[in-house]
Nucleic acid binder design. Structure first.
Lengths: 349, 349
DNA sequence: AAATTTATTCAAATCGATTTGGAGTTTTGA
DNA sequence: TCAAAACTCCAAATCGATTTGAATAAATTT
């Protein structure tokens, strides 16, 4: 494997000049630079990462630690993120080191990887309010970026969608259609995104002075099964008067709700409106549901580039405040939402 | 961060001695070694990976490139492997760099990662006969280990199960129970493991002088849906006389077959026997099927340690012939297999 | 007691890229 | 025309661990 010195010898130049030529420093003659590049190409030069790392103190590696849940509900999303992330990192010549969390304490794998001293920073996902991992990394002053936020007032780099607006936009649409009894099938309560959507939902409903009975807010994994099992008693009216609209945290949950509605002989959207948040995963297309699903849409894939870039910029010293991306999910109205049923047998409240 | 020199200064020793003391070389005084270890501990010494790598020429990183298929059938197995693999690598102080293949040519991501010059070797999975990736790595003399074999006569490090024996053991059991019309719902035909099982199945059947009509061997993804859709016409007798036993390439496929049998009002095992190969994934327990599933069992998790160790040994220079593990799946007879039905309305052939 | 081992330790070279502090040349400006 | 500025380029130091070749001290042998 050719080194900088080899190129220097071949061209009668010092390694310093060769290094500068290849790294685009201004103080090298254009002609020389061209010769150096040609020679590097010809000799098949590849910088030695270890040498670079030794002198720069950076490894070009970022870590990600997976907390694999038995229900494997996150698989689809995981692959989606992984694909985009590795591509975005490769664009900036960085790579991803992956480990699986097999400990009880969520911070253990982080301290272990930090001790092993091989990554420049971390990508965290699925933050929870008061997330211990974030506290740890902040204390150790190790660069990281979060997919999501542990708290709306996050002071670290992140990419997140406006989870407060997600249910609000849905409620706005539904109330405009005359709905007053609206249920929320949210994600698991310990995740920050779900907590934020709970708040957004409550806020929106109180804006319209609509009550939210306890039975109308559920938490669970983002699975079809959860949607089905929770919707069934709800739509059967076993939890009080049945909702005329259901807001789902994912399209899979909505699929479960649609199945439950079908089993109950309820028509969508005539009897019940369904709206979901859509991560735009490649193999669950809300548009192809029957009826086509009304959604708040924010493609998961969009998160990848900002996550990679924010982290790498942070590692290069950019201030956290410049590395915070908040996007608004797009409301897309399709066939699964319609006017509230006219025959209101159960006045509300 | 403390360095070897720091420890040397603190103890009045040279960095060379400190290095030897910590790395267990024999030529250092036991007393000195103890002092060095104590000091290293006290100063929180962590070897600088880049420096180690620069001088040893090894990175301590191994690469894995995922070819993510849209059907996402491999998810469960992927997480299982990932979990065990990262643990086994961590045991030997190595780490995993993961990338997703986003190219048409399967070798492209390998050449790219090789050019980026950061891993010591690769872990390959899902080999195909005449696998291009294997040819590339062999040509470049880059260490690798394969989960599976592209060919029974593989001359590289691997961990595999005896895929020839898998259907043979099943056929042995079924013929002993009197079955003569046996179908095979195999994996996708382009994978080496499926090809090998095809051969094992044909060989076993011809041992018993039993014919194998074309319609009795199917290939597809290891999904419940595939099992169901293929079994349905088979069990309906639409593809000729229906089989009395079905061998499935995975427990998920078997789940589909069981559902198809139920839909056709066929009892298992009275009307039809079902046997599957079982990867022993944590959340699909063959034992808890109804009826409990007869399987050839080889826990996927068992592959992880040998894979990691074979690769790391190969990187350290061990010969490939010492790094080949072949295991035999264990036949576990449960309730889904029984004597062939007595009333043979359709003599065979 | 002198010669030879053996046991410990050290100084210095090494890996390969980056970067600092100059040193020649050439160009520009007065 | 001469000094200052601008260009180019180089030598050498640096990052931190490993490893080679010696050197010193202690133990053993003759």
């Amino acid at each position: 494997m050719a080194t900088l010195k080899d190129i220097g010898i071949a061209l009668g130049l010092s390694p310093a000049t060769v290094s500068r030529a290849l790294n685009g420093f201004p103080e090298v003659n254009a002609e020389t630079r061209a010769k150096v590049k040609e020679a590097a190409d010809r000799l098949g030069y590849r910088p030695n990462r270890a040498a670079q790392r030794l002198v720069t103190g950076k490894s070009g590696l970022v870590g990600m630690i997976l907390d694999i849940q038995p229900d494997m509900s996150a698989d689809q999303t995981f692959f989606e993120i992984l694909t985009g992330l590795t591509a975005a990192l490769a664009n900036r010549d960085a790579d991803l080191v992956l480990t699986v969390d097999q400990f009880d304490d969520p911070t253990t794998p982080y301290t272990r990887m930090i001790d092993r001293n091989l990554v420049d920073g971390f990508i965290l996902n699925a933050p929870m309010p008061g997330d211990e991992r974030i506290a740890l990394l902040q204390e150790l002053e190790i660069p990281f970026v979060v997919h999501g936020r542990s708290d709306p007032a996050a002071d670290y780099p992140y990419y997140d969608i406006d989870n407060h607006a997600v249910p609000r936009d849905s409620v706005d649409l539904l109330t405009a259609l005359g709905h007053r009894r609206i249920a929320l099938l949210n994600g698991e309560a310990h995740f920050a995104f779900a907590a934020e959507r709970d708040i957004g939902f409550q806020d929106a409903m109180s804006t319209y002075e609509l009550p939210v009975p306890e039975a109308f807010v559920a938490h669970g994994a983002l699975t079809e099964n959860y949607g089905y099992t929770v919707a069934l008693p709800m739509l059967a009216g076993r939890l009080g008067p049945r909702p005329t609209a259901v807001i789902c945290a994912s399209t899979l949950i909505a699929a479960g709700v649609l199945r439950a509605a079908q089993d109950m002989d309820l028509r969508v959207p005539e009897d019940i409106s369904v709206i979901a948040h859509d991560d735009a995963l490649p193999h669950t297309r809300a548009r192809h549901f029957n009826p086509a699903l009304t959604v708040t849409r924010a493609a998961l894939r969009d998160a990848c580039k900002p996550l990679a870039n924010h982290l790498l910029d942070r590692i290069s010293g950019a201030p956290a405040s410049d590395l915070q991306t908040l996007v608004r999910a797009e409301l897309i109205v399709r066939g699964s939402t319609g006017p509230a049923p006219l025959t209101e047998k159960d006045p509300w409240p």
